[in-house]
Write a protein that binds this DNA or RNA. Sequence first.
DNA 1: TACCGTTTGTAGCCTAAGATACAAACGCAA
DNA 2: TTGCGTTTGTATCTTAGGCTACAAACGGTA
Lengths: 231, 231
Amino acid sequence: MNIFKLLKKNKLFYNFEDKEINKIFDCLHGHINKYSRGRVVAEIGAPVEEIGILLNGAAVKFIKKPNGDLENCGELFAGDMFGEVEAYTGDRTFSSSVVIAEEATVLYISVATIVRQCSNNCPCHQKLLENVLSCLAERIDTMGVDAKYLKIKSMRGKISKLFYDKYLAQGTEVIHLGFNRNEMAEYLNVSRPSMSREMIAMREDGIIKFRKDEIEILNVDELQRLANEAR
Amino acid sequence: MNIFKLLKKNKLFYNFEDKEINKIFDCLHGHINKYSRGRVVAEIGAPVEEIGILLNGAAVKFIKKPNGDLENCGELFAGDMFGEVEAYTGDRTFSSSVVIAEEATVLYISVATIVRQCSNNCPCHQKLLENVLSCLAERIDTMGVDAKYLKIKSMRGKISKLFYDKYLAQGTEVIHLGFNRNEMAEYLNVSRPSMSREMIAMREDGIIKFRKDEIEILNVDELQRLANEAR
DNA sequence: TACCGTTTGTAGCCTAAGATACAAACGCAA
DNA sequence: TTGCGTTTGTATCTTAGGCTACAAACGGTA
């Protein structure tokens, strides 16, 4: 495994040169740890001093419910990170625990050094900073989009908006969803059968055609209308 | 109007000293403009070169729907800002237009200079940077919370979760909502009558008591249970 | 090509919550 | 105190969509 390649996949190191990545280790107090399954690498309530980046393996995030139970609230894979939000919110403590699910390598970089110009006056700080900002800002963007689907009340509205957005993004009448019915239903926060039912109704109305994750839009105007009037 | 006081209210200038605020104008290329009603201060698609902070007055944000219509998508008042997300996402162009609704004063600071160390080597950059980061990170946090309510399917679940969260935040059995029924219904994305109906059912079940925006929690355990099992 | 696991389609029933429309209560100002 | 606007409560009716449970189609593989 090539650490440079891996890191460049992470949004924090987008457009970094190899030699800049090397600097991470001294300028940003970067260091790498290996963990085996079950190891807790972040604990709810503990102060966030470093951002962790999963170089390989997998991990699971847990929040603590008020009754004390832990609840799975997300998964991390190679390239994903943790602590990057909590590092800058509220009391700067982890809001979820992170537990290694499959033997993993984690790169840590110090939160404190990210915003500080280092003595070497290297450009990597600035790049990293911009990337951290992009990373957070983009997250806000996607969350905004996700919330839009949740707010739409009608089944047809949700589906139409999703398909129409994909249509705009992919630019062709034949779009690929990138998830199966279950995942799509979960994303839209509806039940799969109800969603299927409505998709079929839309097919009967001549708006779409589909097989598997490939959707063909037959009546773009109508889909657009539905997507736009959806509240 | 005292500009220092006003700016300190803005999250970007949290914990700034007066003399640091002064530096904004040279280090961060800050400048102030006055506008009258109807003036467009940000236009969809235009590159974001500066972050705008409303010092007083009011403005409205509009997104453009695919059919070309503009749709109101939010309001800005003193202390609010615009462009702070788009400055770091995608193609760095405004995703909504901002139009002045009431005569307003706007302070602009240059996006490019925020991440750059200035020649004066002043500490205000670093503070500002941290504040920008907090600002974005906190937004992610709140959006996450907001989305939680939207994902809960049952009326009682939504209400319980909201009240329970407020209970945790305010630490007393008598909580204040901070919005009226309409606003609460809108926030939870449900119809007001249905919400009222359920609140009354919960009162009949001895879980809560209420008048106006004051809610008294009579059965914390049950409320907690409801809030936690809500999906 | 026969088997099994997964993904998708179908059916029927039932209830939570939407919509509407009106009535009561509350504030506030004249 | 009366009157008016706003906020809240209530009733009725209707329906979209949840849930369950099963059947069909698909895909990989032995």
